[in-house]
Design a binder for these strands. Sequence first.
DNA 1: TTTGGCACTCTCGCTCCGAGAGTGCTGAAA
DNA 2: TTTCAGCACTCTCGGAGCGAGAGTGCCAAA
Lengths: 338, 338
Amino acid sequence: MENRKQAILRAVVHEFTTNAVPVGSQALQSRYFVNLSSATIRSELAELADLGYLAQPHTSAGRVPTDSGYRYFVDFLMDLEPIPDRVQTYIRDELKAAPGDVEGMVERVAMTVAAVTQNASVASAPQGTLARIKHLDLVSLEPKEVLLILLLEGNLLRQQVVNTSEPATQADLTRLTAQFNASLSGRASDEARRHYDGAPLGLEKELLGRVIAVLDMYEKGTENLVVHDGVRNLLRQPEFAESSRVHQVLEVLEETRYLTVLLRQLIGESDLQIVIGSENTSSRLQGCAVVLTTYGPSDRLKGVVGVIGPTRMAYSQTVARLQAVARGASDRMAELGV
Amino acid sequence: MENRKQAILRAVVHEFTTNAVPVGSQALQSRYFVNLSSATIRSELAELADLGYLAQPHTSAGRVPTDSGYRYFVDFLMDLEPIPDRVQTYIRDELKAAPGDVEGMVERVAMTVAAVTQNASVASAPQGTLARIKHLDLVSLEPKEVLLILLLEGNLLRQQVVNTSEPATQADLTRLTAQFNASLSGRASDEARRHYDGAPLGLEKELLGRVIAVLDMYEKGTENLVVHDGVRNLLRQPEFAESSRVHQVLEVLEETRYLTVLLRQLIGESDLQIVIGSENTSSRLQGCAVVLTTYGPSDRLKGVVGVIGPTRMAYSQTVARLQAVARGASDRMAELGV
DNA sequence: TTTGGCACTCTCGCTCCGAGAGTGCTGAAA
DNA sequence: TTTCAGCACTCTCGGAGCGAGAGTGCCAAA
């Protein structure tokens, strides 16, 4: 596409994303192309419309980018907006104050992304394929009731009340704790399974069974953590003035089970994914754009974090800030050994 | 107030809460008072309006309950709606599936309340004045990095990464763990403070300091957990058709710090509190009603759970179901020893 | 290829109007 | 004294009509 057409498309996108009003040839002329006449711009606009990149809400209105228009913009025209110092500091401070466990970090990441992009955000927890036990603890609650505490890789704490068939004293449990820690800590879940198979019947096997159940749940992702934040930001946008639009988005966000799959699937192999309007498979996200990237302490452990907003979104700003948060979170997690 | 006036007020409230349309004399006559003429009902309506219990959106519209109308209704006319078996089962199942820790339970309670009342819900965690340590654990991460795990009353797990000034082996830590557990477990936080004062300088004092910090944070309520759910339910109501109304409510709900104070303050000493429209101190909750009750495993540990919805709310249903969930949660928590 | 000029189209906000719903009042009946 | 039928009145709501304004597409000239 010729340079000038690109420049005009870029201008239309920029203008529309900031003002939310269809942009006409005169506005473009006075603000972007002073040395062109509005008639010239009009004919360019008409051609861009023929190419499918622009549309008119009605015959005598200005132009609005179509989904393909946005697509062309993010693929070829967008350059990342530099992040103001104020925002960078904010991101750093927020992440520094994050707690030392994965779950707390995921929430913090979602919060921060929502705040700096002024849209809704969604984040899933980094998750390896095999859970690793870092530490294990057994606490006697009642004679036949034991609290099992598991510390997994990522400083993830899991607890479960186990009703044992035989009574056990705290001393018994302390002994078992030492034994389990010696054989299991630092090991992946398959090690626990091997021990389980080899264990004699009784308390030991009972408890190992529950350990495995917890690990399983984590690995199978049935307890996969997905959080979202910043829906209130959407309410500020004119495209969400009728609350039914918000309702649709909320429905997607609150359907946690589906969402976690969706995120993994969307992100695929790439490190940055932008899904615009009709490209969304879910009809409830029509009119919305989703920007996703990955984050995590290592290549093995990657979570997904993303922004959901109207297609009329400041993509260059959103992408820059989203990536900044993702990078910051990854660094912080590596640093914390999470 | 005469019986008939009461009956009419009750009918107006009932009719309006179900249809969200101002109710006229004819509608009342045909559906509730077949043996009265609409003219008679009209004069009663006029008197109820004079008393301040009803209002007209405009001269020739039907009547709508005022805030005082709702107030009179909940104080004198409301009788709790029986809860269908289906709903009772749902509540029981949801609570049964709740995890064995306070935080998980709070979330479950909020979710369940939102689901059965079809409004937004909010819940704060039960909190005693003094934190009790149930169990403590120390895990070596790096030579000079220790993960402190605290199990508090209510099966609340707290963790913190501690950077120690001197290196410590896991054996050192295991020894300290045993010592701490012997002296602290089952004890309130003041015991920890006494030990801290008496402890010699070094690793022991360092770690005890962090234990106290965690307990402090919990007791001072700076980390007070408040969750909310079901905002999407509000979006279904006509009074929230303009999204700015939702926005205001969301702002209140997301201001967690303020909310926890507000809840405690609103509930005061009573066990059921209903705040209707203008009775709310927050201007952002105008047009909204808040129904609150307490729940928790014991008299010492009480949290607050509530419903937020339009003033046009099915009070008799809301109150009944809210109380049912609160009772169920209390029982379940007592049972779990949370 | 660009540009000024011009006719054309469509929205938006405004007013006007009639239908419909619901009220308040009045005078008579119970 | 209460109830009620009848009636005039008020107000909303939706649709129609209209003018202003914004923006376009096209054309002929530079």
